[in-house]
Each structure stands twice: as C-alpha cells, then as structure tokens.
Design a protein around this nucleic acid. Structure first.
Lengths: 356, 356
DNA sequence: TTGTAGGCGTTATCAT
DNA sequence: ATGATAACGCCTACAA
C-alpha cells in the first residue's frame, strides 16, 4: 500500500525537516548536497510517492519534457499506417527518457504557425518534422525559432543546416530498377508517391538514372505519382496494362499500392512474378509482418512475398527520437545527420520478362 | 508584420492601463466586464499576439487542455493502422476545440499506473481508453480517479457506469454469418481477433448465435483467434483449406487479415467469391479508400471488393472525442453512451457455395 | 465594473 | 551543505 494523494515539495520538505531548496536539489542531482541527506530525501520521496508538478516545473524552467509531432493525417492519408509505426518506434525512446508526445493534427499550411506557437508557448522542448517537401518552409522557421528539431527525411540537396535522418531513396530505387533491367526488362513502370514529397522525388531520380544508364528513354505513360493508397496501385496498374505496350515490370513506392497492383493483376488473370515483375519499397509495416504474437509467427517462417527494397520505418522512428533527445541535451553541438541504406530482398514477384 | 516576441499578461495590462484581473476576465469571457473594455482588450491581445502561457494557466487552474491517449502500439500491432485513423478523427475534433493530444506508448500492464500519474499530475483533462478487454481494470481506476473518460468499445455486459462508444459487433457478425447461411453455406469459418479483446468476444458471439439458430454445430477447427495482421489471415486460411472438410465461407474480423485470406486463396488457385466466400469487417481504413486526393478517386468509382460489415473507425474517433469534450464540460452530467450499427455492403467476395 | 493581493508548485539566486 | 526569498505567469477570492 503506497501513499496515494498528491504530495508537493512543501509537504515533503516539512516532513523531512529540510528546506524546499535542499529537497529540490537532492532530487535533481545537484552536486553540493550531502550524500546522506540525498539518500534520506530520495527514500522519502519514493515512499510518499512524490512527483513534481509538471506545470509548476515547466513554469519555472521553461522546459516541458514534451516532443511536438505535427502531422496531417487527413491530407496525405497514405501516411497514416506509416505514421503509426514511426511513432511506435519514437514513443518507445521517449518513454525510456521521460518524454511524452504532444500530437497535433493540422494541414500543411497551418503547420508553420503551429510550430511557432508550440515553441513560443514553451509547450515542447523539441520537434519532429514529418513528410518534408523539397524546399520545405518549416525548416527555416524552426531554425529561426532556435528549437531543437530533427527532420524525418530531407528537404534539399545541401541540407547541411539542419538535422535529418533519411533512407537513401535514390540508391534504393536505382538498385531496384537496375535489378529489373539486369533480368532483361525493358519497359519498367514507376508507381511513385506524390512527387511534391522530397522522398518521392529522390525515388524517381533513382529510377530515371538507372534507365538512363541502360540507354532506355523515359516514357511518361509509365510514370504515375499520387498518394500511396491501395486503390491507387490498383487503378494505376489497370491503366498501365491497358497501354499498347504495357510494362513487363513495375517499381512501386510502397507495399500499400503494391497490394493494389497485385489485385489489379489478378483481375487481369495475371500473376505478379510470373507475368509482370513487381518490386516494392517496404517500410516493414507491422501489420504486414508476422510478429511473434500473431499466432503463426515464428512457427511458419514467411518467404517474403514482394521483392523489395526495405527499411524499417519503426527503427527510423527510434533513431530520430534518439537524435532529437541528444540535440535537446546539447542544443549547440554539431549538427549530425544519418543516411541509411535500404536492404534489398528477393521475393516471389520478380522474374525475367515473358517471351512474347 | 505582427508582433513576434512573447508578451505576457502583465505587459498587456500595462499597455492597456488596466489591471491584470480585468484583462484576464475580458479575455476569458467573464460577464461583468464592460463590452467596450472587452473590445479594447481583445483587439490589443490580437494585435500584440498575446497568448496565455499554458504552464502558468495550468498551474493556476489545474486544467491542461490535453487529452491523454495511452496505447500499446508494440504489443497488439494490429491496432497500428486502426489507431492512426481513429486519432485522425479524434484529433480533428480536439483541434477545433483547443485541445491537444498527449500520446503515451505503454504495455497494457503499465497503463493503470500511467493513467493514475497522468491524472494525479494534472497533465490531462480527460482520457480515452483504447482496446478494452472484457473486465478491464483500467475502467475502475479511472472511475476512482474521477477523471472524465470515454471508452472506445466496451468492457462488460452491463457497462452502465462508464461512458463508451461502440459498434454493435455482435449484430454485425450475426448478420454476416446469417447472410452466408442464407446463401447456402454450411461450413463457415471465423478468423477472429484476439478474444481477450472484448470486441472480438462479441464478434464471436454473433457468429455463434447465427450458427446455432441455423442448427449448425460449432467446429473448433473453423475458429481462429489472433492479432489481426495480414500474415495471420494468410496462415489461418492455409490451415483451414487443408482441413478434410474445408470451409466454403470465411468471416474475417478485419480487412487486414482478409488481404491475407485473399493471398492464400490465390496461392491455392482459388478466388474469393467464386470459390470461397469471404466477408470482412471493414473499418474504412483510409489507406484502403480511394480518397479524393488519390489521383483516381472520384473519377473511377470503386466497386467494393470485399463484402463487408462496415463502420468507419475515423468517425468513431470523432464521436469519442466529442463525447469526451462534452463530459469534460459537464463532468457530473448523466453518463451517455452510443452503440452504432455497422453497414452491410455486398461486394465481390460472396456467392452461393460451389456444388461439389 | 474594476482593482488588490494571494496562491498554484517549482526552480534559482544569493546569503549564510 | 543548507536556507530564505524571489521569480515563473496566470487565475480568483475579496475588496472597493
């Protein structure tokens, strides 16, 4: 039976016969307090279930122990499942370090103002930028505000003036495209994400450079760009396969539209792999994995279905959170960024092109 | 160019030549302040970009204008995409009302303590309970704490002592099963969620009661229960179809495992609809919809693929948020709960059983 | 209708 | 090594 009702610093210090100052110092690990005293204080605080009031502490220090995540879950609905996995990773790190997430949903246009308010009001100690565009205005604002922040992805070519963590999208898509070329494919389509998003832009560059190196001309009819939902993959594939010369292979920016690709092919009596090769970018979304809790997981090892370039968005969430906490810890340290290479995994959806 | 640097109540009142009290009252809509004064104050506040400090306000009032959402995004990974859509709906309502989300990730065992701390520390004004189990201990705790809360789903049969919003899972699954029976199916499998979850329990009851009414004995081999991820649907289906007498129809608790069902059938050279009927519970997850931004949406109307019982989890999020804010507004009003009926939509995955 | 003064629970400065 | 005391910025009796 531990004590329940809230206790404050004043009560605690009176109980101990010490001043609030000393108790506060003992609890916050100041060096000048006697070890013996500290031990007494810590023990009593534990026993009486003392926890400092966050709003009082925040008022006094200006720190909130909150991390702001501002996202537009309604606009680019494709990010929803990605967001959940990212936040699952980040939240794990925050939890271990006594931070909480302040989540705000807002359209992209509102986000500048929101970041500003969040920082001015001292509601957050740091901020994560989701879904950066090429030339994203949020980054300039955050730099001007002087708040610690990390961008998940990148905004520009240079990008030496902010802290980011990104996957090497260009190389990943170059590699996927090159793999299909090496198998003998000549007509390769790209079902990309929205190309205002910087990551989609880079993916396209990777795809294009691989084709160029192989001396294959780009064909605009083979390029699609949209929000990465399942029906988009479906309709894009139907459109592609209706072409006079349909593609023999498709590179898809996410497993979500890739599922739509599979469905469209099935409707046409075709199979991914045998009839049309498909490579997807795989974020290792949890609901597509057979985790240890999923009943069959572990017992039945899954052969990956899609041939894919793969990078766990959940691990990205963890790493971004770590980087941000480090930055909050020393806001004036050097800017450090990270570029991850995606894995390449061969599944069941790629093969040499059919003879015709 | 509006003023930038933070301004506080003291400065604002000095600028106006009024006391802090009057300014505060004017801004907070107290009735006794003269309309003329109020107009002056409001105008100046606007112009000088005054916003009250949240931590100071919180310290003074005990209110934080934050809503606590505690979720276990790692344990039951199936909830991830569902969670994102739910929070997208809820966040919209919060935003309109000046509330923010405090998001904390934690295992189910930790959640009791976390709710307690969140409330004791006055970090949140209200709380949402996600994924209630049958006989969920969190509800008792929250009632004891006296904090406004709404449960998304239900915990018990009675449940008159807390505020909830739920879909009529029992009726939905009764209806789906009955529909298959009416088509002539006799061997109907259930690929359910984890039955420690109350919603899964109710779904099973609906399924069972329909079979009982039709005089069909339950067959444990036709029942699966696990975390609702895609590979689970796949493996469960493979197992089912390996039975000496495989089912001719399957009811699936979510479109996520339902995608796995489709994939498994395809691997066996079977098609959902023609060979095996499939009905799924559809939460209208955004990444499976063709929204207006998805490039093809609107132009190409989608015929629903799955025959489904359907209820938008995003709308549920909105409604839960509204109910919670109402409850925060009047904490001692009568407890009001809501039960929604799921829609029934006929897609391409149901047909009378094949003759054998 | 407006103002004065005290309190909310910390942290931080300056003595001792 | 410890203790008074003053911020932090707002709200709210109570007084006028």
């Amino acid at each position: 039976m531990t004590a329940r009702k809230a206790i404050n610093l004043k009560m605690l210090s009176e109980t101990l016969g010490l001043s609030q100052t000393t108790v506060s110092r003992a609890l916050n690990g100041f060096p000048e307090v006697a070890e013996k005293t500290r031990a007494r204080v810590v023990e009593a605080a534990e026993r009486l279930n003392y926890r400092p009031s966050p709003s009082a502490a925040s008022l006094a220090t200006g720190k909130s122990r909150m991390i702001g995540h501002v996202v537009s879950l309604s606009e680019h609905i494709m990010i929803n499942p990605h967001f959940a996995d990212f936040i699952a990773g980040a939240g794990e790190i925050y939890g271990e370090n006594g931070y909480d997430i302040l989540l705000r949903l807002a359209s992209l246009e509102e986000q500048e103002r929101i970041y500003r308010d969040l920082v001015d009001d001292q509601r957050v100690d740091g901020v994560v930028v989701h879904g950066p565009l090429t030339g994203d205005s949020r980054i300039g604002i955050l730099n001007a505000l002087g708040v610690p922040f990390v961008v998940h992805g990148r905004s520009d070519e240079e990008g030496a003036d902010y802290c980011w963590m990104d996957v090497n999208n260009r190389r990943a898509f170059h590699r996927a495209t090159k793999f299909l070329l090496d198998l003998g494919h000549q007509r390769i389509a790209l079902i990309n994400g929205l190309e205002t998003m910087n990551f989609a832009d880079r993916r396209r560059q990777g795809y294009e450079s691989a084709l160029e190196e192989a001396g294959i001309a780009l064909d605009a009819r083979l390029l699609h760009s949209s929000d990465m939902v399942e029906p988009y993959g479906y309709h894009a594939t139907r459109t592609l396969m209706d072409l006079p010369e349909p593609p023999t292979a498709i590179v898809v920016a996410s497993v979500l539209p890739a599922m739509g690709v599979t469905r469209a092919l099935a409707d046409l009596g075709l199979r991914a792999g045998a009839d049309v090769s498909v490579i997807a970018f795989d974020d290792c979304l949890s609901f597509l994995q057979s985790g240890s809790k999923s009943g069959f997981g572990g017992r039945v090892p899954d052969i990956p279905y899609f041939t894919a370039v793969r990078s766990s968005i959940r691990e990205a969430g963890k790493r971004v959170a770590q980087m941000l906490l480090e930055r909050i810890d020393k806001p004036h340290g050097p800017l450090q960024s990270e570029l991850w290479e995606a894995d390449f995994v061969i599944g069941q959806t790629t093969a040499p092109p059919r003879q015709r």
